[in-house]
Design a protein around this nucleic acid. Structure first.
Lengths: 343, 343
DNA sequence: AACAGTCTTGCAATCCTTTGCATGCCCTTG
DNA sequence: CAAGGGCATGCAAAGGATTGCAAGACTGTT
């Protein structure tokens, strides 16, 4: 049914090898033969069968991507970046979503391994050992995570936290909270460590508020604890958490930024749409995806495992309406005693 | 490097055919032989080479998905649904994004055609002819679009518009605007037609406001025209447009819903996060993706082109804060003369 | 005029799996 | 005891493209 190289060869009056060579290395074929073959191939709409090709070359012309949740806007953008670069390089892209079951991610990588030339893995929560094991077996590039010297694209989390805390301190905040993400998340660890060390440097009064699911619901859950903490400003693990905070704070009648300043991380598109709009540390998400593909393709084309090839992308605080000077002494809870609160 | 059936055969002391049969049709193999083979396969970590398999079977075990923009939350959810169902059925998923170049979508389908058993195509704006041509050549299922009797998953757009208009009319609105999406978008056409016919049925004073890009920026661009139109309520082509309207209305000092009620379509996750939260027609996006895969797999497994297999999913208006009773006679423009506006 | 060297093309093996067919064995039955 | 029928297994072909090697044609040089 599909047209094969044999059909083209027959039509052009040459052998299959010549057809193959014409398409792969045109300079090794006489111009007039080349023209005949190209004409025949075009007339028949010939496309080399990728299965047959990869069977002999060992290459698939496909890359893989594994993410915890396609609907999380962070991963959506990474996916877009990966797709874009892969497509530009002439590679197809296999996508798999673990639905936040980090234990399943290794299996997804294994499943797609024989169909791809390499895989971009976003697995914030799987254990180092599992990831190191995978990297031993397959060609991997990690996004937003470091494990040993597996090739990886990361962002400068510490600098993001630094920018956020400097901003808050400049506004006059003294007591600043960090609403954490999942305990086992790599970037949460990075951000928490930076919060501690840079907060201390800046002589801030720090409050650490546990671990929350990195979604809007997590922020909603964290908000009341935050209010009770007496902090006048908060840095959330990510924007979704921050958006949940904003929502619950509004319900509770806590004004942002007058009573409480809120900073997120990622600068997802929604951050600009709330009122007040969310101040956030812009993370180059799409660029992370693109860079990951570049790293992967470099390896695929060199044909070697280039351990230690990593890239740390820079971030930039984007200031919007959710941060401002603290209204008075004391935290939100002080100015909003129980009676006033709209629970 | 990779372990092949030969390695397993050697280890188990059988022929390659037996290895293949053990994995494909275990009942045709003697139990003890089967055990030896399974043990050897497990010990070596054998996985059949998908390229070799698809070369002979003509099946790839992979499905394709083409969307205009992965970052558009509508398509993000469809993608998630498609991925989920494909994975559950043991299929891998190739994803391609046309970056809103609808002319490129046919080429993307063609490119992946030989790597997949079938493709889910989301192409709201390509011409009917192009799509019909593709369907002739390849196994396709359309999402959110009908072309001839190509298998397709759609939603009941007319009913969505009906629910929205009934809601607005019940609140007491008389002059209602529709802010349109792209002229060549199939669902825009459906929604506009429904707006006209149902609006007339309900005896509403209808205003049609041109075509806008289906993003937040389109809504921002449409807002001023909307204000000038004198409508007290608006139905937007989709939520992103509606969110753009909300943003610009806020800037202009037009209160929602007191001065203007706003309804979107899709009920994307962000819709719940704005203030006021957006009233929107919930569209089962993920379910659309799932249903599309079901249709596709039915065809793949039957091995025939089942023309005319379609499914029309139902929708449900979700009422939130962005709709309410009109404050007084006259449109927003009347109550907000130029002097008051915060441009 | 003959030979060396270059360029072009075809042959054939190879990648790995699946599957129709044949073989050989054993068991059953007349 | 012989023949027939299953059952389990191996053989070999097939699927389509790639590529090392060899052969043939042709150019140019001595």
């Amino acid at each position: 049914m599909a047209v094969s190289a044999r059909d083209v060869a027959r039509m052009a009056g040459v052998s299959v090898s010549t057809v193959s060579r014409t398409l792969a290395r045109p300079d090794q074929v006489a111009p007039e033969t080349r023209d005949k073959v190209v004409a025949a191939a075009r007339a028949l709409g010939y496309r080399a069968n990728p299965a047959a090709r990869s069977l002999i070359t060992g290459q698939t012309g496909t890359l893989g991507l594994v993410v915890p949740d396609l609907e999380n806007p962070y991963f959506t953008s990474v996916t877009k970046g990966v797709q874009k670069r892969a497509q530009a390089a002439g590679y197809a892209l296999l996508v798999a979503d673990s639905d936040e079951h980090s234990g399943q991610e290794a299996e997804l990588v294994r499943n797609m391994a024989s169909r791809v030339d390499g895989t971009v893995l976003c697995s914030p929560r799987a254990s180092d050992d599992v990831i190191a094991g995978l990297a031993q077996e397959f060609r991997l590039v990690l996004v937003n995570r470091r494990v040993g010297d597996i090739p990886a694209i990361t962002v400068d989390n510490a600098d993001g936290v630094r920018q956020a805390l400097h901003h808050l301190r400049a506004l006059g905040h003294g007591r600043v909270a960090y609403v954490g993400g999942p305990r086992d998340s790599w970037s949460h660890g990075e951000r928490l460590a930076a919060f501690r060390s840079i907060g201390a440097e800046l002589d801030l009064d720090l409050v650490e508020l546990g671990n929350f699911r990195p979604y809007v619901s997590g922020g909603v859950a964290a908000a009341d604890i935050l209010i009770a903490s007496g902090a006048t400003a908060v840095l959330a693990y990510n924007d979704l958490l921050a958006l949940g905070l904003l929502e619950r704070l509004r319900q509770r009648g806590v004004r942002v930024p007058e009573d409480l300043s809120v900073v997120g991380v990622d600068n997802v598109p929604v951050a600009a749409l709330t009122s007040p709009a969310l101040t956030s540390v812009e993370v180059p998400r799409m660029e992370s995806g693109r860079a990951a593909v570049d790293l992967l393709l470099a390896e695929v084309r060199e044909g070697v495992h280039t351990a230690g090839a990593t890239q740390d992308l820079s971030v930039q605080l984007v200031v919007r309406g959710s941060t401002g000077t603290p209204a008075a002494a004391g935290g939100a809870a002080v100015r909003h005693p129980a009676g006033v609160v709209t629970t």
